[in-house]
């Protein structure tokens, strides 16, 4: 076992973890952040996507010790955990959610894109979510939602 500190959704946690513990398990089982979905367990589907120091990672292929001292954001912390985030609102408004299993990962991938590129083209939006598989939506309404979210964020001056 190993003691580490990680910052998740703006809060620092001191944890005693197993050496080979995966970040997805720490987030879900120790911190109760079940918005992190486990799909394929091999870094292909993107359901377990979280943001680590401003970049998306698949938390099933990150060991928790690798997150030591890093800042993690999950879907629960995307807007301080209180209010719905404009990207989430855009997903609702565009009908971009069907079964919902890919949605947390999609929204976090969209956030990293929009943080870096506030006015993406549809192609750039497609590229940003290309590591997140979705079986229901055919992606088009998700792309619509990302473009709409960029407008919402611009209006809010974020």
């Amino acid at each position: 076992m190993k003691d580490i500190k990680i910052n998740v959704n703006g809060k620092t946690h001191k944890l005693n973890i197993k050496e080979d513990e995966r970040l997805v398990d720490t987030l879900r089982n120790r911190l109760g952040l079940t918005g992190v979905k486990e799909g394929c367990s091999e870094g292909e589907c993107g359901a377990c996507t979280v943001i680590m120091d401003g970049e998306t990672v698949t938390s099933c292929t990150v060991l928790t010790f690798q997150a030591k001292g890093k800042e993690i954001i999950t879907i629960e912390g995307i807007n301080g955990g209180n209010k719905i985030h404009p990207i989430q609102q855009a997903f609702l408004d565009e009908g971009a959610v069907q079964c919902g299993f890919c949605t947390p990962g999609m929204i976090l991938s969209a956030k990293v894109l929009l943080d870096k590129n506030p006015e993406p083209t549809r192609e750039e939006a497609r590229k940003a979510i290309s590591g997140n598989l979705c079986r229901c939506t055919g992606y088009n309404k998700i792309v619509d939602a990302i473009i709409k979210a960029s407008k919402y964020l611009k209006r809010e001056g974020n």
Binding site: R135, C136, T137, G138, K141
Partner: peptide, 12 residues
């Protein structure tokens, strides 16, 4: 909107 979502998904 839901019907379009089904069409996009079915196409994919």
């Amino acid at each position: 909107s839901l019907v379009e979502g089904q069409m996009d998904g079915g196409f994919s």
